[in-house]
Write a protein that binds this DNA or RNA. Structure first.
Lengths: 175, 175
DNA sequence: ACAATATTTGAATAAAAATACATCTAATTT
DNA sequence: AAATTAGATGTATTTTTATTCAAATATTGT
């Protein structure tokens, strides 16, 4: 089995929110917002979504957040923040990661039992492994990188789909 | 990054909950419970605390959880769970690896299936892996070390506790 | 010890989030 | 295409969580 890098492309132009009406796109938008903004309540998020022509109710939002496994966590300043499971890291590393993927540095991803093996272009393994480590702490216990191969050890209970979506290779609504 | 290893020191007499009435001890008990139990609501936690002779109200609990920065996150099974922030994960140190752990070289140990993954400070992995290989031949089939991660493959029939006591690292459940 | 100050707490309440239920819409089957 | 089924959503409501306010408790300074 070889998994290729077809998917990644669609993450690009998420700007044109007006055309996005269905659930999947709404979830994408929510992810985007939560990744870039401190949101402390569903009502707050609701307003942000409506600003983006995305009309929903708090009920739907509650369901969406549950689907996305978004956690609500207290901040040091006394406020609260919703946190996405895999995007609670700085955007910087994420950007770096994305560009690596975009350039085809990741060649393939295969699973064996509970383990995943990522093949990269020669020399890229440690760099990408580092990114995976930092970005996917929730899903991944750890990585071991050679020169062009990374062994990814998922945490218990983390599905293959979780790993895939973590890598932005596929966006899955089912989890 | 500093991992906090405070807990175990006064984890001794956590049995005697009756004598613990003040805030600090309550927070400690809450941490303990959340580390070892799936708790989905404050009322649930409230009952667990009352079971332990720790009488509080939901209001106090809400404040405590905010103080501890405990996040509420959805689980795959549709339920919810309170999660302590990662730096609350206990990492204890005694015995052979004391110095390494004390110096923070070993950052964490977690299991996934039959495998164990040890995280170390960058560069330490091979050194520590070599030690494990040599000292734990009975329990361990082999190790694979990256730069800051060691994959430990236990022999068949070797329990997690065996590995833990081998490493003299106190058991720490993934929250 | 006493007063002054700050912290902790519970009761009541407000605010926020989750869900039951009905309805609508999209997909699938026949 | 009509019927059936599954999925998505809104409204209303319940459940859960955060906070206000006042009282109690602890802490500090004199």
């Amino acid at each position: 089995m070889t998994i290729c890098k077809i998917y990644i492309t669609f993450a690009e132009n998420l700007n044109n929110y007006a055309f996005m009406k269905n659930k999947r796109n709404r979830l994408q938008i929510i992810s985007e917002i939560l990744r870039s903004t401190v949101v402390g309540s569903q009502d707050e998020l609701l307003k942000l979504l409506i600003d983006k022509q995305c009309d929903v109710t708090q009920a739907t939002l509650s369901r969406d957040l549950k689907l996305l496994k978004v956690a609500k966590t207290p901040l040091s300043n006394g406020a609260y923040k919703y946190i996405l499971p895999s995007y609670n890291k700085p955007l910087a590393s994420q950007g770096a990661y994305n560009s690596l993927v975009a350039h085809g540095a990741i060649l393939s991803l295969e699973f064996s039992g509970q383990l995943a093996v990522v093949k990269t272009k020669p020399g890229y393994a440690s760099a990408i492994a580092w990114d995976i480590d930092n970005k996917a702490n929730d899903q991944v216990l750890g990585t071991i990188a050679g020169d062009d191969t990374i062994l990814v050890i998922p945490r218990e209970g983390v599905s293959r789909e979780d790993i895939l979506s973590m890598l932005n290779i596929a966006f899955s609504e089912k989890n």
